[in-house]
Design a binder for these strands. Structure first.
Lengths: 340, 340
DNA sequence: TTGTAGGCGTTATCAC
DNA sequence: GTGATAACGCCTACAA
């Protein structure tokens, strides 16, 4: 099956000890240059591959990091994963990707399974669930297990995080709509189990306040972020006595659904109603009526998260490192909000 | 850090041997029921976690499978991965996901890195590259390493595969356009380094032939499957003296771009030109003008691929198992081709 | 039914 | 500089 040349075979062939072979393979400095080269060359010739399990058993380190995300087919997450890998691979770490499909129960299960496979650390974006898994996270902190939240975090003392400033994002999104002339801005949001959605909502609310617009909870709607839902709730919004003239959706899918519905009713985007998305999903840019959105730099976020994790892993003494990186969101103005 | 209770600790506590503990933990049948229960309970209480490296070192098996795909943010692949996991997890296997980003060099590198981390097998969809990595694959066959292609395969003797019948898919797609009344069907395809695209092309050609339409290589265009490219090449097609009245694109992104361009030129889809996509990307269904496409059942494909791999792994003697599962494509007719 | 003991492949601590 | 050897934690003949 696998090639199974061991350091024993090399040692025997060269009539030296396994200790020396091991040292050579690890580039130990205190070896004669000639033996070092000889051993490395021989190892190559014999097709030697280090057995990572033996190494891991001995060292207690797997050089593997677990990544937990709700799902990988959302552009934001796959980009963040790419960022993580670009940071970790050069540092000698492999990556294991797990999905929770936003199921709260799978969340704990996945963490345990990763720890059971002895990853050296975990990077996680939590699920959108009402289940409270705080205890699991707290236990991790107590054990000093290297762990970092990215994007979707929970406020747990001792856990570092890398996030977008979602309050600011909600604020600038709403502000943009107001500056385009919207007087009544609806908000398609998600349940507020996740901070990211709550913060965007708070930013939305603050912007309304700052610009002297009335806040009306009737036009703040909590819904899963699916295209269908965007359509459905927009239908409801348009049926109100006092319908909105702007919609800020917490995801491009919702915004997309909203736009479809508005058009279907013979109204114009952005002239009748401005629609604003979130997340910068690739398709949003390519629509005939491109969607204004907020970009969260997932690649950068992944890199920062990986760095924060490495810092924890390489933390020699157990000094408490809690660190919160907050990235600045970027407004991408496109047709769906750009009135002439 | 990790809890480090070993079978030694349990043995000591209960004044029995590690062998008995090990047996109990593996549910060996030849143990007194009472001791078995006692040990399992004690292990639980002490928070015992099996050290997978020791086990792997001893058994030579990692119980991990590598998955290699071009990228995970394409719905087809993320769905296939889901199918694979649903099949493998219940069988006690973990999964490591790797992306090649369609880079030929990363392909070999990734395989080696996976083998180096001693996965028990690999499931792979090859990259769209001109680089020929056949030798790497042949070496795997020679070593008897469990390996299965899914979707994007290479014809290598000894390697099993699970694919869609892309010839048939190309045929029914083209046939559908012809039956909608198209007399001149263009084909937006990819370079033909990959069988899937070549086969779809061959199916396209055969359908034209069967229905007595002329084949014209001028309207067969090889291009990366990006929205922009779909636009660009459609522009070229429409500028021809004899423009097509139907377009069969090998990916929904291309079809999407094509539709945008046709509309931009003030023409109507499907009345002036029918447009057909491929892959059943989720967004295609939700467009105002929904895109007719071909569904390839990625979930099912993932499951079959995983099964084929498990068969190889569990193959007791080294009987040669080469198996080719070919799934039937399914036409999903939507607005972009449906003339009244 | 249970215990003894050797080995999986590495690395690290001693010695020399 | 290099060699002998003891772990790392688990499994499994072989014994008892």
């Amino acid at each position: 099956m696998q090639s199974k040349v061991t350091i024993y075979d090399i040692a025997e062939k060269l009539k030296i000890s396994t200790a020396t072979v091991s040292r050579a393979l690890n580039n130990s400095s205190k070896l004669k240059q000639s033996t070092l080269e000889l051993i490395q060359r021989t190892a190559d010739e014999m097709g030697y591959q280090r057995n990572i399990f033996a190494k891991a058993l001995k060292s207690g380190k797997s050089n593997t990091i677990g990544i937990i995300v709700p799902r990988i087919d959302i552009n934001f997450f796959s980009s963040a994963i790419r960022g993580i890998q670009e940071e970790l691979n050069p540092n000698g770490y492999q990556v294991v990707i797990c999905q929770t499909y936003d199921k709260g129960t799978l969340e704990v299960e996945t963490i345990n399974s990763l720890i059971n496979s002895q990853v050296d650390g975990i990077l996680m974006s939590i699920s959108n669930t009402k289940i409270d898994n705080s205890d699991t996270f707290k236990t991790l902190v107590k054990k000093g297990f290297p762990f970092v939240f990215f994007d979707r975090k929970k406020d747990i003392e001792g856990i570092s995080s890398v996030t977008t400033n979602d309050f600011e994002a909600g604020y600038i999104a709403t502000e943009h709509l107001i500056k385009q002339g919207c007087k009544r801005v609806a908000h398609l949001t998600n349940n507020h189990a996740l901070d990211i959605f709550k913060d965007r909502f708070l930013g939305y609310k603050k912007a309304l306040e700052d610009y002297g617009l009335e806040f009306d909870s009737e036009i703040v709607i909590k819904t899963p972020y699916k295209i269908d839902e965007g359509k459905k709730h927009t239908r409801d919004l348009l049926a109100l006595k006092n319908p909105p003239d702007g919609i800020f959706a917490v995801h491009d899918y919702l915004a997309f659904g909203a736009i479809q519905e508005i058009k279907a009713q013979g109204k114009n985007v952005p002239d009748d109603i401005c629609v604003m998305g979130f997340s910068n999903e690739p398709f949003a840019k390519f629509l005939e009526l491109s969607i204004t959105t907020v970009n969260q730099s997932p690649l950068k976020m992944g890199k920062f998260a990986a760095q924060a994790l490495l810092e924890q892993i390489n933390n020699p003494n157990n000094i408490k490192v809690e660190k919160h990186v907050v990235l600045t969101p970027e407004l991408l103005v496109r047709k769906s909000t750009l009135r002439q």
